[in-house]
Design a binder for these strands. Structure first.
Length: 426
DNA sequence: TTACCCTCGTATCTGTATAC
DNA sequence: GTATACAGATACGAGGGTAA
């Protein structure tokens, strides 16, 4: 290390310049603003999501709003008008649809119980599996055909309407980044989202309320039960994905929500994967205890499909019967985690989990997730493959969950005719 | 009141396996 | 032996919720 006191300041060093032979200074870092393309779909490409260097004040700004760019320094706005992508151009030749019942491009591990039903021009596939030692859960995939897509006020019309009539979508702030897709909430406030981001259904474009009604219908006909009023969906989370935007694995199990979550997918195709959370599958997690980081066995009841099933059952029994103090128990759980790790075959990961169910979601498809433990112990992620996609996800915010101060100052009840599937009956 | 927990991302580094 | 691919680990570091 050089001794700082011995270093001599010489201004000649700073003034030294290497002449550039092939480039002409000055090179501007205020890149030209994005101008929209007349070619449909170009505006949804990933390169148009980059930030802007403000031409007025030079401040760098991320693209936060769907409508365009805003400078947080001087207030400069750049909101070019996009060219919408017509429904006709999102048809994918590799996944042809007709007025026959559509085929499936899903996959699932062998132990998943699969059943199929056909109605209303949808192929309804149910994937059933244990979501905890005590609960059976399911994922239902409704695959839409051409009749569904072309229905009056159906997916095609929703898709085209949303592109030009849905305002206010923003990229929400995460811990240390922006969420990459654009979102908006309608109906009951969803506490996961920062306050102020919920709009009443009366301010929503018609596809939003149509989707709530349609998803309530889908829930009704696929569960075989009449859905009680208080369990009907009263909240819709709209997500707009542009090219290369995806959603990491997560769950929808926030407190105060009903155990059923349903999504309508519009636009480009997407892959949706479901898998057990790592701590549940492998039975190990890392915790901080007494200012120390340690890996311990988790105390959740394992499923027979999980690694070290017998050993974990045996260990759980031991913990249950022993009368450990808290620190003794932590210590023993850490030993057990070490033993579990050692019991893995060589080369087998003790953290990674593969997807149990993979859905290939097309335009107009519906996904319904049922089971509280499905959200507690499983996670799902979405990676869109096309240029642009909307996901309209409905939940039930349970009455009594929100405090007086959190209740919306608007009426949440949907005032409209209930969707009944009669236009696509078959 | 305080300490600690976790997070609907992502780029980058590093070690290991594999291909040539 | 060298280049490449991949998985896993880690840095980043703000703020609301919650248990103590």
């Amino acid at each position: 290390t050089p001794d700082a006191a011995q270093l001599i300041y010489d201004p000649r060093f700073l003034k030294q310049k290497t002449p550039w032979v092939n480039e002409q200074p000055p090179i501007s870092f205020r890149f030209p603003l994005y101008t929209t393309s007349a070619i449909a779909g170009e505006d949804y490409k990933a390169e148009n999501l980059r930030g802007m260097t403000c031409p007025e004040c030079g401040k760098c700004n991320a693209r936060v709003k769907w409508e365009g760019w805003e400078c947080t320094g001087c207030g400069f706005e750049h909101k070019p008008k996009i060219t919408p992508l017509p429904a006709a151009s999102i048809q994918d030749q590799n996944y042809p649809v007709s007025d026959a019942y559509p085929s499936s491009h899903d996959s699932a591990l062998p132990h998943i119980k699969i059943s199929v039903n056909f109605s209303h021009n949808y192929r309804w596939i149910t994937y059933k599996f244990k979501v905890s030692a005590t609960e059976e859960g399911e994922v239902v995939h409704g695959i839409a055909n051409k009749v569904v897509r072309e229905e009056v006020r159906g997916p095609n019309q929703m898709w085209e309407h949303l592109q030009t009539n849905c305002h206010g979508l923003v990229r929400r702030e995460l811990s240390n980044a922006l969420m990459n897709s654009f979102t908006m909430n309608y109906g009951m406030p969803y506490k996961f989202i920062a306050a102020g981001d919920s709009l009443p259904f009366t301010d929503a474009p018609w596809p939003v309320t149509e989707a709530v009604s349609r998803l309530n219908w889908a829930d009704r006909i696929t569960s075989g039960n009449a859905v009680k009023d208080k369990e009907k969906f009263n909240e819709l989370y709209l997500v707009a994905y542009l090219q290369d935007q995806s959603m990491n694995y997560h769950d929808d199990g926030e407190k105060g929500l009903g155990s059923t979550v349903a999504t309508l997918s519009l636009g480009g195709r997407a892959e949706m994967g479901f898998r057990p959370k790592s701590f549940f599958f492998h039975g190990m997690k890392s915790i901080d205890y007494n200012r120390k980081r340690m890996t311990v066995m988790t105390k959740d009841e394992p499923l027979p499909e999980f690694p070290n099933y017998e050993l974990r059952k045996q260990y759980l029994e031991e913990i249950k019967n022993a009368n450990f103090s808290e620190s003794e128990e932590k210590e023993r759980l850490a030993e057990m985690a070490t033993a579990l790790r050692a019991a893995y075959p060589p080369k087998q990961s003790c953290t990674r989990v593969e997807d149990w169910v993979r859905l290939s979601l097309g335009h107009g498809d519906i996904v319904i997730m049922r089971g509280a433990h499905l959200q507690k112990y499983y996670e799902h992620g979405v990676s869109p493959k096309g240029l642009m996609r909307y996901a309209l996800t409905c939940r039930t915010v349970l009455p009594g969950h929100l405090k007086e101060s959190e209740l919306p100052d608007y009426e949440v009840d949907l005032v409209q005719d209930e969707y009944d599937g009669s236009r696509i009956a078959k």
